[in-house]
Amino acid sequence: MSGRVHGFALWVVVAGTLLLPLALRPLARLGPDSTETFSYLPTLERTRTRTMPFDTVVVEQLREMRPEIVLIGDSMGGSRIDPTYFASQLGNRNVAPLFYNATGSAFWYLAFKNWVLAVTPRPRLAVFFFRDDQLTDPLFRVTGPYRATLDRVARSNEARLNVVLATRLQGPLYRLDALADEVYDQERLRQWLEPALVNAPVGLVARHKEARTLLGRMNSEIFCLEALRSMAQADVWQAEEATYDFDKSVATSVLPPLLALGKMAGVRMAFVRVQRRPENNRPPVQSPALQRYVSRLRGYLDKEGAFFHDDWGDPEQPLSMYADGDHLSSTFRHRYTDRFLQVNAPFFR
């Protein structure tokens, strides 16, 4: 057979591979009609109806309060710092706590951008409380039940965060992925096909009445938070090197835009890594990968002119101070606040 026939056959296969999925466009229209609006994070989903509107009340409160210091984080910060006591220990400076349970770095970035920087005069200092690699994990708590909380801090278009998530999920050439969606319109089909596939086996294992609640029950009874292993064990199988690879993850995280915003607005940035729950009354064991990660994070923040404090290994934070998980008992909030200010006295002076 001639080389030309072989060459032609090759091009037919290559072109067919790229052209055949165009059939997805008409197929997508067969699915349930979507009347939802465009998502502010199109990387995650093209259309979506917000669960919560953007919270303007917080902006108003901040405007009235004119804080000098804002404290941002999730319940880790909330269970450690008593903001009123913190303010009094600093000579009654205005301190605004923005601790929202079950949030991650995407939320903190948006809270800083859309709430804190929306107010003038700007605060002088922003302190972020986080655990381990949360600062470089923008996907932490942005989907599922956590999305409603993110809605509160998100404007109708969050292009920068979208780019961060897109590069994390699809790599630096994420625009090609967006282009593929333009061409094949696959996301629309995916939105109803994916749940249909996941629900397909439900009818085979449960009766009609139970079927509707099966997946919800599985999540709440079998895969609930209490049933999971402690992080140290669960992390073993995850490629730790990849998870805690600071150099690889920082470029696709909210940390660089967060620091850039801080610099632009003239707000000093401080980051506090809280200590996880001690084991046998000793600081939790850190894998070599995590140690390396923290050391790289420290170097990076130093270089960027931000302040970094690490709680890990503090002998003044024994197991007896902890309530559930990594949270401190509320009775120790003053003690932690005192200790925090004492250790970082030069910074807060």
């Binding site: 591979t17 790229l18 997805l24 593929a180 094949y184």
Partner: peptide, 12 residues
Amino acid sequence: LSGVLFAAILIL
């Protein structure tokens, strides 16, 4: 086959 597989990659 190749086209169907590629389409399946896009949506699944």
